[in-house]
Design a protein around this nucleic acid. Structure first.
Length: 556
RNA sequence: GCCCCAGUAGCUCAGAGGAUAGAGCAGAGGUUUCCUAAACCUUGUGCCGGGGGUUCGACUCCCUCCUGGGGCACCA
């Protein structure tokens, strides 16, 4: 079934055409987009349109007169029990109580699929997120990336897209060599051999520990091998350990990937040669200063980019081109969403130019940037440097603050807003924060349902739900599909956090006004109706929490 | 210098052409013989960074300036 705002939009369009046919309105071009929004005030109803104000000039009529004709000609909006004109020309729509109470049954029926919509129509989309260099434990900076990417994937999936979550493993290139050399040095040091960590290596404590672990397990094995064999051998072990650590950390937050994609594989399965051929044949490759260049300027870019360095090794951009070729051409994704920190923004334009060079529609690649998080502790900015190893790991933060709170905090702001994350504050507030407020509502409902054991409420009469507290709660519950749709089309899941708070608040108010389980015999019917309502509310809350990647506690 | 993001209540932030600009937190006051008081109810708060413009209508779009953050590598 179509979402209410879409139905209203279509009904208004039809009404305008009908009014013109009947001579109630003069002829003019009806706009493609008819705005249907939520009015500022509850008293105005659930939906409203300001379209008649726009039409005033075209129709040469007062907006309010147009609105009257639109209302007169409107049909097929069974779910509305009043459609009113309000000055200076708004049309306000109010949902019928009978429609609202019916939603309770539909939500119960939908259960785990409530909130799903078919906006995506099965379009194949990949969300690639985190993809941190596998050169050490995940940094807390990756937390926002993880939370945002996973929520976007969840919301897209609920909106009817065929979604794959992918982690791009940067296991090729110069950073990897520095990682290998660092690991080798730390391993040697653990065995009492004096070997220096390279200048551009990783100086953090994590590598010391990893070197020691490998020394404990393998002894002198890698010291006895020729260095050119030992490096990749020990590197492979280190890489596996780092990736396992990353997967563990992410799974602490409930994040699971469908695929881990190796950058190195692009150089062994022919993708790199393929894209080089395409670029060469397209005339986008040039050789000068000893390096191979991608002629981005030929396609409107501001400057050309190095693909293969003068030492003969391909740079990250070469990998990125081959990688996206693999995503779109080889694996056939209709859309790819890459989640990147704002420090990579400069790279976005060349990615779109690269798409053009490959003969792909740049619009199929969406790069969602999020502003970087400033980490604080007690109001003081925590400076981070991976080089000196002075980092705060994702795991530390998860253990200190808790996965649900981390997810909620980081999800609650739009990706565009730069934010502070104060560890002390997050922990301190964890008793007073919205996470608990929302989860408490869920636990409260579960408690009621436990107390209702033995009551058969499956056929409770929903038409008994007539009080304002009950209807207000259902109104909120009924909005979830639209919240999901909006989050999916805007790739902006932060709306979920606001919706969850509103829904929890409506429930808490309802709880105060309406006793659910009553022992009085004359209340038996309303008890059964309210149990259905409460169960549907639990489903709605749980679905919202799950979309945000949070847990749904039954007892608190 | 050029490019991107942001500037809204004491604080953290929603709102992105429409009605009287919202929420949470913090502050003040109140609520429990009864399903979870981690709750509920009442209450104050705004030159929407400044200045121009477009529009019937601008916090929202355009120009400009100011402030903060991030980019502008043969690093990723």
């Amino acid at each position: 079934m179509e979402l209410l705002d879409v139905q209203i939009e279509k009904a208004i369009g039809k009404s305008l055409r009908r009014a013109q046919r009947h001579g109630d309105l003069p002829a003019f071009d009806i706009p493609d987009q008819i705005v249907v929004e939520r009015p500022k005030q509850e008293s105005m109803g659930e939906y409203a349109t300001p379209v008649c104000m726009q039409l005033a000039r075209l129709a040469r009529m007062a907006p309010i007169k147009i609105a009257e004709q639109v209302v007169k000609n409107i049909r097929d909006l069974d779910f509305c029990d009043s459609i009113e004109v309000a000055p200076p020309g708004f049309i306000n729509f109010r949902l019928a109580p009978s429609w609202l109470t019916q939603q309770v049954a539909l939500i119960q029926q939908a259960a785990d699929t409530y909130g799903c919509v078919d906006t995506g129509k099965g379009v194949k989309v990949q969300v690639e997120f985190v993809s941190a260099n596998p050169t050490g434990p995940l940094h807390v900076g990756s937390a926002r990336n993880a939370v945002l990417g996973d929520a976007i994937a969840s919301v897209l999936s609920a909106a009817g897209y065929d979604v794959q979550r992918e982690y791009y493993v940067n296991d090729a290139g110069s950073r990897m060599l520095a990682f290998y050399a660092t690991l080798m040095a730390r391993y040697a040091q653990a065995l009492g051999v004096d070997e220096k960590v390279p200048e551009d290596g990783y100086h953090g404590i994590a590598m010391v520990e990893l070197g020691k672990t490998i020394a404990d397990e393998y002894g002198h094995k890698f010291l006895d091998m020729p260095r050119e064999e030992a490096l990749p051998a020990i590197g492979k072990i280190g890489l596996r350990s780092v990736l396992e650590g990353a997967a563990d950390d992410l799974s602490l937050m409930g994040i699971k990937y469908d695929n881990w994609f190796s950058e190195q594989s692009l150089y062994t399965n022919g993708q790199y040669e393929r894209i080089m051929t395409i670029l060469r044949e397209g005339g986008y490759v040039d050789l000068h200063d000893g390096a191979v260049w991608f002629m981005a300027t030929k396609l409107g870019g501001s400057k050309d980019e190095v693909i293969v360095r003068s030492d003969g090794t391909p740079g990250y951009f070469a990998s990125d081109i081959a990688y996206h070729y693999d995503k779109f051409v080889t694996r056939g994704f209709d859309r790819v969403i890459d989640i990147w920190g704002a420090d990579h923004q400069g790279h976005v334009p060349r990615m779109h130019i690269m798409m053009k060079a490959l003969g792909l529609d740049p619009e199929r690649l969406v790069i969602t940037l999020y502003q970087l998080v400033t980490l604080k502790r007690g109001g003081e900015i925590v400076r981070l440097s991976k080089r000196t190893g002075d980092i705060i790991t994702l795991r530390e933060v998860l253990e200190e603050v808790g996965p649900d709170a981390v997810r909620f905090f980081l999800l609650a702001r739009s990706a565009d807003s730069q934010m502070d994350f104060d560890l002390d504050l997050a922990k301190e507030q964890s008793d007073e924060n919205p996470v608990y407020y929302i989860q408490y509502a869920h636990a409260r409902i579960c408690s009621i349902l436990r107390n209702a054991e033995g009551i058969d409420y499956a056929d409770g009469d929903l038409s008994l739900l007539t009080s304002e507290a009950e209807l207000a709660l259902i109104r909120s519950m009924a909005r979830l599909p639209q919240v999901v749709r909006d989050a999916a089309v805007n790739l902006a899941p932060h709306g979920l956090t606001y919706y969850a708070q509103e829904l929890a608040s409506q429930f808490h108010s309802f709880y105060r006004d309406c006793r659910v389980i009553s022992s009085l015999p004359e209340d038996e019917a309303i008890t059964r109706a309210r149990l259905r309502l409460v169960e549907a509310c639990r489903i709605t809350l749980a679905r919202t929490l799950i979309l945000m990647g949070m847990t749904t506690p039954e007892i608190m």
